[in-house]
Design a protein around this nucleic acid. Sequence first.
RNA 1: GCCAGAAUAGCUCAGUUGGUAGAGCAACUGAUUCGUAAUCAGUAGGUCCGGGGUUCAACUCCCCGUUCUGGCUCCA
Length: 645
Amino acid sequence: MQIDVSGNPVELADGATCAEALQEGLSKKQFKKVVVAKCGETLLDLSTVVPTPCTTLEPVFADSEEGLEIIRHSTAHLMAEAVKKLFPTAKVTIGPSIKEGFYYDFDYERPFTPEDLEAIEKEMLSSVGANKEFSCKTVTPDEARKFFADLGEDYKQELIDDLGADEYSIYTHGDFADLCRGPHVARTGMIKAFKLLSVAGAYWRGNEKNKQLQRIYGTAWQDPKALKQHLHRLEEAKKRDHRKLGTQLDLFSFNDEVGPGMALWHPRGMLLRAILEDFERKEHLKRGYDLVQGPLILKRELWEKSGHYDNYRENMYFTEIDEQAYGIKPMNCLAHMVIYKRKIMSYRDLPQRYFELGVVHRHEKSGVLHGLMRVRTFTQDDAHLICRPDQIEKEILDLMQFYSDIYSLFGFDFDVELSTRPEKSIGSDEDWEVATESLRQALDKSGMGYTINEGDGAFYGPKIDFHLTDSIGRSWQCGTIQVDFTLPERFDIVYVGEDGNRHRPVMIHRAMLGSIERFIGVLTEHCAGAYPVWLAPVQARIMNVTDAQGEFVEKVQAFLKGKGIRVEADVRNEKLGYKIREAQVEKVPFMLVIGDKEVESGCVNVRVREGEDPGMVTLEEAAQLILDAARAPFEAGGMSYSFSG
RNA sequence: GCCAGAAUAGCUCAGUUGGUAGAGCAACUGAUUCGUAAUCAGUAGGUCCGGGGUUCAACUCCCCGUUCUGGCUCCA
């Protein structure tokens, strides 16, 4: 097939993929245009494209991101058409494609039920069968306004007013027309695989104060096979859900009697957590932090001074004794400030770096709680760096390296986001300038890719956030670095400069894992419960074949314990297969089998959680295997393995 | 907090148009002494989330709470 884009002839084989098109020198945008052009003549402003008839759509671009986007967006239109047909009084609002699917928000008198979804899906299929053509026309703002006014679609009119464009495109297929930027597939018959997934409430334009709409989520793919794979992936992801694994591996639980959003850590889970916390303390000490700790509750006056009492009170717990004389801390900074003020600091003393695994309580709205990811009692791996303004950049740069080292150790990919000054903010222009520039410089120097979130900083300073992804692609903010201008001011903390005068230091709040709870939640899903050997609460389990090996089992256990290995023995009167299965389900990394043969030779037979079994080895070798496995990720990351069980 | 759905044994779940509950696994007891993902038999275990209401009768229907799940908003 030959296409002409902006006067550049391009030769593409039939069924060319997006990647091939890119190689031929087409930009993604151009290719998208070309593909759409090939699918139908009137879909875009195609003055620069010579369209050719298109017979099939999917081989050309369905494997590309753009292709899926078009399919999904078109499916959203298809759904809106079906909803309007079945529920004529429903008003349409917006319906974009999203990661792995699409949604459409409707204003309707009652919520949609699962049965409604089935009916809608059926209606959509019939529209697919009718193979209706998508067409597009460009209109003026007035024409667009009138068009949707006649249809009674007031949300669309509001959009037109807000967008303020010179002209608008309206896409039509069958009887359904929608204000839309496009592009779309040429005909509804090209939508080959979709499924409606769920209904949820969503506020118009994402604002809590606006009317709540009915959102229908769905997913769409290039072919039924891809759809099936996607649904299968969702099923698989459910198995990695940390809440499920928490029960299965007996790590933690939640209990209504205790309170919502408050985890109970079982022996195994707490052991894992303790190892992680121990690791963190040592890593922080290594990098020049001081360990500190303040109390869980602090006098109300202090919260008034910091501004939390005025701005954050509804999220805080208070003691009832002495009429709210004490506030239960929702963050750790106040005690750290007071600790800083214990003596006169010189510029030579800066930066001060205070680290605390601080337990905080925040009364989060009930609807947001989610396993370990969002709780009301949690532990932050929190630190406050109090430094001179000229030290910000260096400190940030060190932090970037620190975070990166640690995330990599766990095998996480992460997104970095820089958030700048919001509309409502305090602090001088100069402060913001210096702080934001320091963050930007450090980010640039670190070589990490990052996105900028304009105006999304805290009111007291700019920040950098680090996001880790859970098993089903939800992204969770874990690490954060925030510059703060207010607290040093409010608490009047100072240092004595070279000039002998008092100066105001800058304060950096930062948490690396974010919260221990959330991090363990994300990590659990990341590794599906098969924790790295250095973290696994049980590193090795010894199992005997019959009672006859009891004595040797004890000997082996004592030996491995002596090497600092977390080992337990399963000497129940059960078949070996049963014990193996149980250990495998519990994701114990090393299974050491002992039968008569092993007793005789003084060896153990090693089976591993995944990969090839080492088989028969001496005790010395077995211990080495386990210790090496524990050390491996540290060595790969150029770090030292700094602790034992 | 808002919208929707859910809550039955330690865990995972059945429970037909209203007639006071069942399975598998786990636990306990006994038999079995066995070689890499589930040995057999028996026993015990429930205020069916809580509180009201309708009914001769409620796990089941209605109302109000609580908690959980999926979203929205917010956030580590």
